[in-house]
Design a protein around this nucleic acid. Structure first.
Lengths: 219, 219
DNA sequence: GGATGTGAATGCATTCACAGCA
DNA sequence: TGCTGTGAATGCATTCACATCC
């Protein structure tokens, strides 16, 4: 079905897939039934050829003369990204950011369910955080296993990031989204992505100096 | 000094510059005086040649036989990124995320000072948020001018993102970091970067399906 | 010896442009 | 006619490898 060798697929293409999906969902909400590669590309600041090429890495989803059927393409892209299922996610770190993420009700619709929250601070353990209760780190392994948790949002302070990462890896987590402003190291069997606000601000700062705004394509 | 045409500089190089800076600050904290391109590259998961090439776009900062002086290179990179000064930043949207960002004390050190917060909800206006008081949107123009604010963190719901963006642009903001899970459009004179948690989770999801973890280089 | 800086070579990603289908 | 899918051509970014300097 898909090319079995994922390294044949340009990484930038996968990033754009997420953006296409976001736009497609917006188009669906507006009642669009079909959409051309040109329109989809324009909506994410890209070209028609780019859209077609990106999608073609994974199969033939379009209909010549018509374009792409919105509903159908959403399903395909979700399947490709692996969000045609629900991933269970934990939050490591019940600070301001962790709590803000827990309160956000938009992940479920995207295929991610926040099912647990952990903190090493005894003062925070036991507190209710929405529907969830903050658990001590000691329960990590058991909870990950019991609730079949695959992903972690790492929202601890920079100083604790690596230590907690190691715990997550031990517990069997397979993917980590790191919000701490440090690099973390994990075995290559564990997927890691990072999201550092300061880094993005620096990119903006640079763009503002050289007015040639090259527009950082969404992340 | 720098090449005057910023489009001669690969965009990925600028992104890596931020990561180098983060590592350099860590090395400084550990007391390192000099560092080689190899060591710096390794610390961000890159190669020595890549580091040298990236830096060489902006000048000659190294010392053959020695490497780079940490303190000196930090200063240079900050100058390149434009964070050798302090940018005044506002937060648009005093929801959970906005408040979490306001509470974070790490931006100042990086050259970004959060100086104002706005919300359209009358119930939130007037509330204290740390040192700041939530202001109504109507005061946007005046405050941006008075406090010389250049950058905005956009933390409003998706449904309001475009409308508030338009207000920010009107008020004279020159850069926007968008946390809402939608594309926003702004004049090309305004720098825009986006930071969508769901998008990053999707990238992780993809990586986890094709175990060939290509490791999303920090953002 | 141990580093940098940099042209040249390679490898990727994007764009072009067109055959083919509805 | 309108649109996709795709080889071929282009353009960018990364890597190599070496002259150069402390």
């Amino acid at each position: 079905m898909e090319p079995s060798r994922a390294d044949a697929i340009p990484n930038p293409a996968v990033r754009r897939l997420s953006l296409y999906l976001r736009q497609l969902e917006a188009f669906r909400q507006h009642g669009r039934i079909t959409i051309s590669s040109r329109q989809l590309g324009q909506s994410v600041g890209s070209t028609d050829a780019q859209v077609r090429k990106d999608l073609a890495y994974f199969g033939q989803f379009g209909h010549p003369g018509i374009g792409y059927r919105v509903e159908e393409l959403i399903a395909q892209v979700r399947r490709i990204l692996g969000t045609d299922r629900t991933w269970n996610v934990l939050v490591a770190g019940a600070g301001n950011l962790g709590r803000a993420l827990l309160a956000y009700r938009g992940f479920e619709r995207k295929g991610f369910r926040l099912v647990a929250v952990f903190d090493s601070d005894p003062a925070k353990v036991g507190r209710k955080q929405g529907a969830l209760t903050v658990q001590p780190m000691g329960e990590l392994v058991a909870t990950v296993r019991r609730d079949a948790i695959d992903l972690a949002l790492l929202t601890v302070p920079a100083s604790a990031a690596q230590e907690v990462t190691d715990c997550l890896v031990m517990a069997g987590i397979r993917g980590i989204l790191n919000f701490a402003p440090v690099s973390i190291v994990a075995p290559r069997t564990v997927a890691v992505a990072s999201l550092d606000v300061a880094v993005q601000l620096e990119q903006l700062s640079f763009q503002m100096n050289f007015a040639r705004a090259t527009r950082t394509a969404g992340a």
